[in-house]
Design a protein around this nucleic acid. Structure first.
Lengths: 355, 355
DNA sequence: CGTTCGATTTGGATCGTTCCAAACCGAGAA
DNA sequence: TTCTCGGTTTGGAACGATCCAAATCGAACG
């Protein structure tokens, strides 16, 4: 008896549960639960007593247990192909911000652009029972495999890239995409308006849906202006600065050489600037170029880069909103949202140089 | 009867549980559980049957339920003061990589450098019962408040910044810090070796522990070399590029003006370069400077920036390792790890210009 | 044939919460 | 006095897994 009394004192802290609180102030577990959830049923006076006890014992709510019983979820999985990239980091920050406000917690997964890791990450995350998934697929990822990993129960919001393969129609997956085509088109139109006639499309490669879309926008603008496109004005590179710098020479192998280029993204554009500098060509004055993404650096490069702003943080918030909306109406039709991009004109896209 | 038969067919999919599998192949729930956990107890033949059934019904493991029963956790919370910053994004990628390999999932929280949000985020995350927390505190965050939010049960690993206030000794919180002081010292020594004698410490402000440490390293090197430090050679700014560019003039208000500066971090250094260019001073040739962090951009700025590499992704992996070690030995003494930084010499830190 | 033993399998309690139907209670109505 | 009726409170069964002690089983042994 005395032993049990000693044990019951504040010895090594177990986790405090509803039972402890209930016992501590002489009500039932159910009542405490009602207090926690702010039910109007409980009497003012008991509520006060219970709240005092909660505070005193340092109770922390066990949301996992609650979710189990209620068959609900309070988390959303966020799976990104490359978290290290500032674009996705900003996106993640936006997602987390909005989810947090809605009382959800973000389960993070980074796939490092590997389809295998994506599979592993998705299967692991799904076991934690997220209410939904925001997925920016790894390159080469296809619908069948993703569906196999996540099942048809959990809603998915695709961001930024399309999946290969196709989805059975019972899976209502929403999509949030950037307006790649229109973006590249207005960038091209801008260069044309500056007086350029020989314009290349530089960097990225055709495996990526975003690259194909941007290229299509470029072609569209060139055609609309009645300008010809030489095959050698399409230079493929990895979407990295280094590779873009390396491939610079290919641009001038073509005769006549282009006087401007629409680049796949900012990394490529900045790399191309580097390559131009190395060849003694002044970017912005002797050769015009545009980027895509408006990374922080674009405003500060020399010359500052004309590019398409996508506002990744706002996209993150938007993605979270879209998924939350889906949770509210699981059976609604699948939606596709195309986020606008805006052209930010800086000095890299000047008029053609008199040669 | 026929109604119930119809219902039992594959109508609208409920979630599949152990019971469904057990019923499906005529064994008990317990046996299925053993199969799932790869227990050697189960007969080869039954295991095969059960695994077949798992596959057939598309079972997904409910880790939350398992964690509840086992009183374990399979998640770690990662709370960052600014996820949008590439340094922390890389760090997060590293953390997630290592946690994933260890079978943990990352609960993300971004505080946007606000102490209030940090409180809210921590209290929300703690309800999900993470096994531990990796925290890069918001500026001005203090130990008492963090402790109140997370409780004494959950181990915490502090990254990058110290907390204000002090911790009761029963809380074994580990720490992973960058070697700020040594880093700034070797950067300063490098500038001294280049022949500079009038060296400023530029940017950041004294509220931040990392800034104080870096400043201390700078002072240490200057003193060791017997060089004087003029008060006006300490210019405080926000840790942003814009503000650093703005404050450039203050550096040259001092007479004699410095010929070089150790900058608080890369953002500040890049901003200072911008400011120098605006004043017609060529960074790297007419004025030497160093950064801190080695952000991706540092290698590509003009001139490329001499800076201290911290390898944030490796730090992330290391942080995860440290926390996992703590989970294995909850009662071990608290540790402090100081991660080395390495000087990357590029062109921004040239010898003094003959005036 | 009854026992024993190792290899498998299993029922029931349990983790911390929520749900639900039923119980309780004091006051005013009949 | 009994009955009814809001306003409160509550016990016990879930949720989907794991743990544990006990049951089952087939073969080998004496």
């Amino acid at each position: 008896m005395s032993a049990s009394a000693m044990e019951s004192s504040t010895s090594i802290r177990r986790k405090i549960t509803l039972n402890d609180i209930a016992a501590g102030c002489g009500v039932s577990r159910a009542t405490v639960s009602l207090v926690l959830r702010g039910s109007p049923l409980v009497n003012k006076h008991t509520r006060a007593r219970v709240e005092e006890e909660l505070r005193k014992q340092g109770y922390v709510y066990n949301r996992a247990a609650a979710n189990l019983r209620r068959r609900t979820s309070s988390s959303i999985a966020l799976v990104l192909n490359e978290l290290g990239n500032p674009f996705f980091a900003e996106f993640a920050a936006g997602v987390d911000e909005t989810l947090g406000e809605a009382g959800f917690v973000t389960l993070l997964g980074s796939t490092g652009e590997s389809v295998e890791r994506e599979q592993a990450v998705l299967s692991s995350l799904i076991e934690h029972g997220p209410g939904g998934i925001i997925l920016s697929p790894a390159e080469g990822s296809d619908a069948e495999r993703v569906l196999a990993a996540v099942g048809a129960q959990t809603p998915v919001l695709l961001f930024n890239r399309e999946l290969g393969g196709n989805l059975p129609e019972y899976a209502h997956w929403d999509r949030l995409m950037l307006d790649n085509q229109r973006g590249a088109r207005i960038a091209t139109e801008h260069l044309i308006a500056q007086g350029h006639k020989r314009i290349a499309f530089y960097g990225g490669h055709g495996d990526s849906s975003s690259c194909r879309q941007r290229h299509a926008g470029y072609v569209e603008a060139m055609n609309a202006a009645g300008l010809p496109i030489a095959p050698r004005w399409r230079v493929e590179t990895l979407p990295t600065r280094m590779d873009a710098a390396r491939a610079c020479g290919e641009l001038f192998a073509a005769k006549p050489a282009p006087t401007a280029a629409v680049c796949y993204n900012d990394a490529v554009a900045l790399g191309l600037m580097l390559g131009l500098n190395q060849r003694g060509i002044q970017p912005g004055r002797e050769f015009a170029l545009t980027g895509f993404d408006d990374v922080a650096e674009a405003a500060f490069s020399t010359p500052p880069l004309t590019t398409l702003a996508t506002d990744p943080r706002a996209r993150g918030r938007q993605a979270a909103q879209l998924l939350l909306a889906r949770l509210r109406k699981p059976q609604a039709e699948a939606t596709t949202t195309v986020a606008p991009v805006t052209l930010v004109i800086r000095e890299s896209s000047g008029a053609p140089h008199a040669t």
